[in-house]
Write a protein that binds this DNA or RNA. Structure first.
Length: 413
RNA sequence: GCGGUGUUAGCUCAGCCGGUAGAGCGCCUGAUUGUGGUUCAGGAUGUCACGGGUUCGAAUCCCGUACACCGCCCCA
């Protein structure tokens, strides 16, 4: 038997309707903030991600689906979408358009990691990018917007963590201070941290080993090293979030894994997800466009929601959300009624009524089928009904049966 | 990429120390002629994940592979 490849999966009903719901909610919220959809290719030149995501990141060093095209060019299945959006922004000179560019996307991403619950090799992200402004106003609006998406999806119990990772002016100084301090304390820490102390000092802050926590708490904080501009920016973001009564927590240790982040970073987590508790992540990337060859600066901020994880949280939190509606089930008795029902269904469906036509057979059997499909009403169409010009309409919930003419039926459904 | 647990009917699982498989749910059929949800009776379905080994004999023991899940790394 041929099975779906490792780390990929089929989204079947009724789960697929939850996916559709989530996407519809996101589109509606994005629209209300005046975002418009962008669709970029699912694969790009490998070079885009090397430069955009960062050569030293885990994504680039060990997780990309990279393959040579038949012409010899190296292509890569997109591991994330921000780099592609910025590439499109530059390529199509969107900086020449008036105002901020506010773009959203929904689609599959690919990372070759060891699969786990909530972690797949093909997964879907719902994301948005606001490009063209360095203002803290935009940061706060983006965080507000994504919180609104989760809330309107019916999700509760998520928490919002924010931080500032500084800018090219102040972050290197912080990293240097961190490195120096780690020289003395790292030997007392876990093996991973001893390694990180030299390879990636920022990662030490993310360590979850309980014994290391007191040591980490005593390490220098990024906030002591932010330059005046970065500190002011972060203060304003926090003030604006408070103005909106959005509950957030400052996590000085929140370090994101992509190289392009500057200043504001944020992450939403949810307890129902297990080890992969991050439901969405995002941040500001003021230097990314220039890194990708833009001649003009294009400061931006964005996020991406892990759609698989969002759907999973919703399904675990509220299990009975996905229930498709079947308005009317037509039960034909005899070949003539089958033709009659087909024509009737055609007219009803033009009005977007959800209609199913049963197979000809014993009424008992047809009723059983209608019941299993959870039909609201069943319309019985046999010789008697066709001769009389009136159908028997049964309310499946109450069991009551009434008589309706074709006109009455079309007016009602 | 590293470590661990698991893989038996469509689903959830049982199967003790090796003697070639079961339950519940679901599905199908019937309880006479045009009426569901309850009840009753009957029925179908598994190369016991795959490959190899030990054995007279393996779902049951051993090894390998695949996949899923848990933890690590990292992230969505």
């Amino acid at each position: 038997m041929i099975r779906a490849v490792k780390g990929t999966r089929d989204i079947l009903p009724p789960s697929s309707s939850v996916w559709n719901h989530v996407e519809a909610v996101a589109r509606a919220v994005f629209r209300s903030y005046n975002y418009q959809e962008i669709r970029t290719p699912i694969f790009e030149e490998t070079q885009l991600f090397l430069r955009g995501v960062g050569e030293e990141t885990d994504i680039v060093t060990k997780e990309m689906y990279t393959f040579p095209d038949r012409g010899g060019e190296s292509l890569t299945l997109r591991p994330e979408n921000t780099a592609s959006v910025i590439r499109a922004y530059i390529e199509h000179r969107l900086d020449q358009l008036p105002g901020l560019q506010k773009l959203y996307y929904i689609g599959p991403m690919f990372r070759r990691e060891r699969p786990q619950k909530g972690r797949y090799r093909q997964f879907s992200q719902i994301g948005a990018e606001a490009i063209g402004s360095p203002s803290a106003m935009v940061d706060a609006e983006v965080i507000e917007m994504v919180a609104e998406v989760l809330t309107r999806c019916g999700l509760t119990g998520f928490s919002i963590d924010v931080n500032s990772v500084g800018c090219p002016a102040c972050r290197p100084k912080f990293i240097e201070a961190l490195r120096q301090r780690l020289e003395s304390v790292a030997p007392q820490m876990c093996g991973d941290c001893q390694r990180r102390a030299t390879t990636n000092p920022l990662r030490v802050l993310d360590c979850k080993v309980p014994e290391d926590q007191p040591i980490i708490d005593a390490l220098p904080s990024i906030h002591e090293h932010l330059c005046a501009d970065c500190a002011g920016h972060f203060e304003l973001v926090k003030t604006l979030l408070s103005d909106r009564a959005i509950p957030y927590e400052v996590k000085p240790r929140l370090v994101r894994g992509l190289d392009y982040y500057t200043r504001t970073t944020f992450e939403f987590t949810h307890g129902a997800l297990g080890a992969q508790n991050s439901i969405l992540g995002g941040g500001r990337y003021d230097g990314l466009a220039e890194q990708l060859g833009s001649k003009v600066p294009a400061p931006g901020i964005g996020f991406s929601i892990g759609e698989d994880r969002l759907v999973m949280s919703i399904e675990e939190t509220q299990p009975d959300t996905a229930r498709p509606v079947l308005d009317l089930f037509l039960a034909p008795l005899g070949p003539a009624a089958v033709r009659h029902c087909a024509a009737l269904a055609y007219d009803l469906r033009k009005k977007n009524t959800v209609v199913e036509v049963g197979a000809d057979g014993r009424l008992k059997r047809v009723m059983e089928t209608a019941n299993k499909l959870a039909a609201r009403y069943v319309l019985i169409v046999g010789e008697n009904e066709m001769n009389a010009g009136a159908y028997a309409l049964k309310d499946m919930a109450s069991g009551e049966q009434t008589t309706v003419t074709r006109e009455q039926l079309l007016a009602r459904f």
